[in-house]
Design a protein around this nucleic acid. Structure first.
Length: 596
RNA sequence: GGGGCGGUAGCUCAAUUGGUUAGAGUACCGGCCUGUCGAGCCGGUUGUUGCGGGUUCGAGUCCCGUCCGCCUCGCCA
């Protein structure tokens, strides 16, 4: 093999006259006829134009050159020279070209199913890109993502290493636990009938590492949750997982803020500014979300009391059942938001549990359209409360506190998108703190953890943990950037007494708690330091910096909505002998279906 | 589990109220062309219309079922 002496991104005009060897893929070929062929040779580092010029290239090399096709793999030796034609400003190497003197055609490609072209990549069906991922990943845009992801993990390791964190691995084969997401489970061969779970996160292990005196822990680890994916969510994803001992919330937020702002600045060239703290209640009240997007101004206001003075049945029912009415003023919205558009926003509200989206416009000093006649009696008060000006539109979120807030909060995002209120290139981050400890689950008629069962209550709320769980706040915190949760954590419970109480509130009996979490409770009995930490979603960090909404763009080998890997065709059928060794009998004979 | 969108040539798409031989661009193959760079010009090959069933004289088009992909609600401590 002709071994390369430099990469396709390197040669410049000051290398003129040098003889070098390049290796790579044929990106394009331009055959000008007998005696002149251009190819662009591509590797991870860039592209260089290679010219086969009969005046300077040996005949047999000319012949080989004219047979080259896109994505063939070659090595080519030649001399760098300034281009005869115009330089190509779009290529870093655009001022020079390599005059082919010797060539080795290393591997010719079969007929290509897709072309690795950034130019029309978004036109290619994602299904094809995933099936032929090795071709798709050759695209410079995909290479850029892989590199950015690498830079983020490198920055992370360097940052935390220089702050005395130890990178420690935790097991992949662990024990199934109740609570939380559905586990992926793995059969045990040695103990027939028993199963491992794949970790939803290393949560308990990292806490135990604190008990073990490790003090500061870091891991960049895979987490697995057998739940339905979304555009920004995969069953298999990566967390930057951290834990620290002898710290309080301020300590954790301080170093994690330093990390986050440093990361965005160093790797992304993005100034995140300060990361203010906002309480969960404030976030819900003002933005209708526990991950508020603060890049634009629209805010929600509570008008429950005013609404109760109206004769509007929808308002009254919410008020009487202890719910809320939230209002959002959209300045100048009366003209910009047609009935058709507000109807579309109503669909958004309905998706999030609201019955609809009452709307009223304020024009010429009076309310018009929608629920105008219902809010007329509270006109003066409403105008004053919301600071209404002529030409505004008001939308209402009605329902239980969470439904009123979140449905209108989602409408807020839709309105911002519709009216193009979100400045491009702006990044805004904040910490959401003071989450509730619990959320009441109607279906199961029990409390569930808002964060997770190991989250400590605020010290000041310890006394109401059991007497008033609804109002007990936790030490949980989420880092939110541009309306996306990019990380979250908490100060953990570090005594077995409180941990048992929380398990109890979650409806886990003493026996169940001991059975499922005994190892943690035990660890807490043997000298657990106060500790807390964070996990950042690596995939989301990459997505945000690269500017994509699609998590599959930032994962080398992602899975589909049904958890399939279209390239390797996972999941697959196990050999009957494998199942037999594991003591597993299929309920139904396996149906092999022909792929479509 | 629910709702929505989609599946036609290797790829991206078109195909009128159901109508005869399913087209175009691109890729690929052949030819021409000595300064191109998403090269150009000329010619050519390419189809289980996802799969199965039904209605019909006739189905890419209508109906039923099913598979796959995407978006989404639930779910994701």
């Amino acid at each position: 093999m002709l071994k390369r002496t430099c990469t396709c991104g390197e040669p410049r005009k000051n290398n003129s006259g040098e003889t070098i060897t390049l290796s790579g893929w044929i990106n394009t070929y331009r055959d000008q006829g007998k005696g002149l062929v251009f190819i662009d040779l591509r590797d991870r580092y860039g592209m260089t134009q290679v010219v086969f010029d009969a005046e300077d290239t040996p005949t047999e090399v000319m012949d080989a050159g004219s047979t080259l096709r896109r994505e063939d793999v070659i090595s080519v030796t030649g001399e760098i020279r300034l281009r005869d034609g115009k330089p190509n400003a779009r290529l870093a190497t655009g001022e020079i070209e390599l005059v082919a003197k010797d060539i080795e055609v290393i591997n010719r490609t079969a007929k290509l199913p897709i072309l690795p072209d950034d130019h029309d990549a978004d036109k290619i069906g994602e299904e094809h890109r995933l099936k032929y991922r090795y071709i798709d990943l050759r695209r410079p845009a995909m290479q850029k993502i892989l590199k950015l992801r690498h830079q983020i993990t490198q920055f992370t390791r360097n940052f935390f290493a220089s702050n005395d964190f130890l990178e420690i691995e935790t097991p992949l084969l662990i024990t199934p636990t109740p609570e939380g997401a559905r586990d992926f489970i793995v059969p045990s061969r040695h103990q027939e009938g028993c199963w491992y779970a794949l970790p939803q996160s290393p949560q308990i292990f990292k806490q135990i590492l604190m008990v073990a005196g490790c003090d500061k822990y870091l891991q960049i680890c895979k987490c697995l949750r057998d739940e339905d994916p979304r555009a920004d969510r995969q069953a298999e994803f990566t967390q930057i997982d951290l834990e620290m001992s002898f710290v309080d919330q301020d300590d954790v937020l301080a170093i994690m803020s330093e990390f986050a702002t440093g990361l965005y600045k160093e790797v992304g060239g993005i100034d995140l500014g300060d990361l203010p703290h906002i309480s969960w209640k404030d976030a819900m009240d003002k933005y209708g979300s526990d991950r508020p997007d603060t890049r634009f101004d629209l805010q929600l206001q509570d008008v429950t009391e005013l609404a109760s003075k109206t004769d509007f049945k929808v308002f009254n029912e919410a008020c009487e059942s202890g719910g809320n009415v939230k209002a959002m003023r959209v300045p100048g919205g009366a003209e910009k938001l047609s009935r058709k558009k507000t109807d579309a926003f109503a669909e958004v509200a309905k998706t999030y549990g609201a019955g609809g989206l009452p709307v009223v416009k304020y024009e010429g000093g009076k309310f018009v359209t929608g629920v105008a006649k219902f809010v007329e009696p509270i006109k003066e008060e409403l105008v004053q409360a919301l600071g209404l000006e002529d030409g505004d539109i008001v939308m209402f979120g009605v329902g239980s506190y969470r439904v009123a807030c979140t449905s209108l909060g989602e409408v807020r995002l839709a309105v911002a998108k519709e009216l193009d209120l979100i400045p491009k290139g702006l990044f805004r981050g904040l910490w959401v703190i003071d989450f509730p400890m619990f959320d009441w689950n109607e279906e199961g008629q029990r409390w569930v953890s808002e964060h997770h069962p190991f989250t400590a209550p605020l010290e000041s709320h310890l006394d109401i943990l059991e007497s008033d769980p609804e109002n007990c706040l936790s030490s949980g915190y989420d880092l939110v950037i541009n309306g996306a949760e990019v990380g979250g954590g908490s100060i953990r419970i570090h005594t077995p007494e409180i941990q048992s109480k929380v398990f109890g509130l979650l409806g886990l009996s003493q026996e169940e708690a001991e059975d499922k979490f005994g190892f943690l409770l035990n660890a807490l009995r043997f000298g657990a330091p106060p500790h807390g930490g964070v996990a950042f979603g690596l995939d989301r960090l990459v997505m945000m910096m690269i500017g994509t909404d699609n998590i599959r763009d930032v994962i080398a080998f992602p899975k589909t909505q049904t958890g399939a890997d279209l390239m390797c065709e996972a999941p697959g059928i196990a050999d009957p002998n494998q199942l037999d060794e594991l003591g597993i009998i299929m309920r139904e004979p396996v149906q092999t279906t022909e792929p479509a």
